[in-house]
């Protein structure tokens, strides 16, 4: 059995109210071509250069957008950390070792966390001061004084 006859038989059995024939075939074919023409026309209209699309798809635009995101995130982080620092006590905020070892700073540390907090603060201050040389010979001292 041929494919056309099979299709006609299938339609007649499943859709008895549908009338098949050469007129119907012609109409379907006409509709199909009309739909095809419409699709081809739409595609060719889309293919025209779009300024917005060009800008969006540009590499420079992508880099600029990434830069803006980075700047915004950085600004947000900075603001959050600034707010946190504003809310901190003097002993918690970043200070120089000298400031960490003042009468006031050590008193604040003691009042807030007892002796352990004083110990912690002093440790931090001396860590910030950095390691000292284990020994200094007279030659090294002379070199220091002579600026060499």
């Amino acid at each position: 059995m041929r494919l056309t006859e099979n299709i006609e038989k299938f339609i007649r059995s499943r859709k008895p109210h549908t009338v098949t024939g050469s007129d119907t075939d012609r109409r379907i074919l006409h509709d199909s071509f009309a739909a095809m023409d419409e699709t081809i026309h739409a595609k060719s209209a889309d293919a025209k250069p779009n300024t917005c699309k060009v800008i969006v798809q540009s590499r420079m635009t992508k880099i600029a957008a990434a830069a803006v995101i980075v700047v915004v995130i950085g600004f947000a982080v900075h603001q959050v950390s600034r707010e946190q620092t504003d809310g901190q006590t003097p002993s918690e905020a970043t200070k120089s070792p000298a400031e960490m070892l003042t009468y006031a700073s050590l008193t604040v540390a003691y009042r807030q966390g007892g002796f352990e907090e004083v110990e912690k603060q002093c440790e931090q201050a001396f860590e910030l001061l950095g390691p000292r040389p284990e020994a200094l010979s007279p030659q090294q001292l002379l070199a220091e004084f002579n600026g060499s």
Binding site: A98, L101, T102, Y103, A104, L106, C122, E123, A125, F126
Partner: peptide, 15 residues
């Protein structure tokens, strides 16, 4: 005379 700002660096060195 520096009041609360006076440094007490020797305290930790003593420890």
């Amino acid at each position: 005379s520096d009041g609360w700002s006076a440094e007490i660096p020797y305290l930790w060195q003593v420890r």
